[in-house]
Write a protein that binds this DNA or RNA. Structure first.
Lengths: 347, 347
DNA sequence: ACAAAATTTGACACCGTTGTCAAAATCGAG
DNA sequence: CTCGATTTTGACAACGGTGTCAAATTTTGT
């Protein structure tokens, strides 16, 4: 009931050892006799003792918290990754905290750096998980270098630098879905790009181009539209692509939200999907199955991405100087649903 | 570059006062001369000093963190509330942490209580924000009472107890959309309930019933289906409701995801929306605008709900014994889009 | 069986802040 | 101008752990 929380000295008293020995057991340090270790552990569970995070981090200068930095957490992408990260952190006894910060573009770079530094000083995490649009931002990476806070980057360009990186092979995935469309007989395939400040935008585009070239087709600039990863920009891109003469017979949108926009416009204009127009997306977010017809897309293991990023990050916290770590590439998978079909009238 | 983080004594030295005085200034305590206060503040900003959270919370037994407890953060509802909560916390210098925990149903009640207690001991938040399905859970509320951790509940049943509560008037909102359908001439209006362990499910249903009764219509049990707040259960409910003889001419789903399911099924069966069937949802989540036709729904100010909950919670942390607080009711708004229209053939 | 080496254990300082309490400075009244 | 009341200030302990280092204990070698 109203019993006070047990402290280390209570555990020590119950086990008949010194405080320091309890500390050693809790931190899995060597130099404790097996029998003593067991006695202490029994005392811990009996009292339901949980070490005080603040005391621990004050002396040990580790906060046992990981921060996930986002621009906005309101997207399936960020949200699902976050979900995976929370699970991993919880499992390892870490706490996940969320920080929101505006992108560099919305303010001056110095303001941004200052704000970021204050934010980090406040939460003083042991490590930070970066997702788009920060995973590729040189200013952000530099600040964390200066603060000597380890970062894990999700879905970044796979450069050679020595930080924890987790992602999928974006280019290959884009190559696969494009090839899927080509094999269905499509030759005029529209492509909707994502936000230009994100590395994945170019990666996916490269995959698209490579697939066309492999089949001996020349990429046509008219078939490529810019997008912003949101529903609305998908609608706008589709307007242009369907107005072409001759129009495209398939559209590859760089994510599902834009694909949903494409589909909405097709529905509205009476263009039949997939008979007159095949559509593919990217991400396999919830919306992909919740539209009609359901969307062919690429499944990114988002939750797993978050989990692995958090685990790898926590793992590196022990090492004093993190070695150069090869990027972890998780497998993606093309999910063929109803929005793609053989082209009707091959020209 | 590699300068160490400034500590309180550095600030004290620069301002020419004692450490304690700096502490007083930072905590807005009285008994500091105006001039001294300014001098200290100047020193703080000059050094870019940020107090150490761990030291603070160790001595002061406040952690400056708020925990948001969810079952799964992967829904627009939870996600948007979380977004608002992060904003509010950040603004007040608090940190938002996320905890995931399985519902009571998935394990024994004692296990649940133990797990919850350990989770809270680990993160030791100053307060907790509860959302569905925990906001109404008596076991959860009891545990927090025992631990003496203040909670803020979002969207709960509006009982008389003295905790921070934030929500909208669910019943009235449901009353309004139902009335909207009635005024369009609909008389056979289907209703899809939500998860039965959540208070809002009954609240919205009561609003639906009240609207029918007010227009002199008798609620028909055949027109009411259970649901689980997800796309799939919306599809299933619609199958049943559209198979009725005579079929319903409108369906009110208790949330947007289920409404999307209803719409998908209608599209698939060739039932024209809104000509043959009007559909309304609830929440105004992103999906509402990202379907075709766009969805008439009720806008819940989810982000604001999260913000207000966090702010009110932080506010009460000062008071030693939180007084009985009246619930905060935020305004909702019916958003009429394309999915509702006059009934075609009034029977 | 005894000294040296290795292992196990505990006393104590310390991390950076806030609470307590007494000292110092200022103010007001007679 | 002095004395008590009040305001302002600072010295010091304390929060609950971990790091250091020395003491106690056990093991090893001869």
């Amino acid at each position: 009931m109203g019993t006070v929380l047990p402290k280390m000295k209570d555990v020590a008293a119950l086990a008949g050892v010194s405080i320091k020995t309890v500390s050693r057991v809790l931190n899995n340090e060597p130099h404790v006799q097996h029998a003593v270790r067991e006695r202490v552990q029994a005392a811990v569970t009996e009292l339901g003792y949980v070490p005080s995070k603040s005391a621990r981090s004050l002396r040990g200068s580790r906060s046992y918290s990981i921060n996930m930095m986002c621009h906005s957490s309101r997207s399936n992408y960020v949200n699902t990754i976050q979900f995976g990260a929370v699970i991993a952190c919880q499992q390892r006894g870490y706490q996940l905290t969320i920080s929101l910060i505006d992108t560099v573009e919305e303010k001056s770079a110095t303001d941004f750096r200052d704000e970021l530094k204050i934010l980090m000083a406040r939460s003083s995490p042991d490590g930070v998980i970066l997702v788009a649009p920060f995973a590729d931002d040189p200013v952000v990476l530099q600040v964390f270098d200066e603060l000597a806070i380890p970062v894990a980057r999700i879905g970044p360009s796979l450069g050679p630098e020595g930080r924890v990186r987790v992602g999928i092979n974006e280019r290959e995935a884009a190559f696969e879905v494009t090839t899927h469309l080509l094999e269905l007989g499509h030759t005029r395939i529209g492509f909707v790009r994502g936000l230009e400040n994100q590395a994945v935008t170019e990666e996916r585009f490269q995959g698209y181009k490579a697939a066309l070239l492999e089949k001996g087709l020349k990429p046509d600039a008219k078939h490529v539209r810019k997008g912003r990863f949101d529903f609305r920009s998908g609608v706008r891109a589709a307007e242009k692509l369907l107005a072409l003469e001759p129009a495209v017979t398939a559209i590859f949108a760089s994510n599902d939200d834009m694909a949903a926009g494409v589909m909405m416009l097709a529905n509205r204009q009476g263009v039949k999907v997939p008979e007159d127009l095949s559509i593919v997306g990217f991400d396999d977010s919830e919306i992909a199955e919740n539209m009609w017809p359901t969307l062919t897309t690429v499944r990114q293991p988002l939750q797993q991405l978050g989990e692995v990023a958090a685990l790898k990050l926590i793992e590196t916290l022990g090492q004093s100087v993190p070695p150069v770590i090869p990027p972890t590439i998780l497998p993606h998978k093309m999910i063929v649903r109803q929005s793609t079909a053989k082209v009707r009238t091959p020209v």
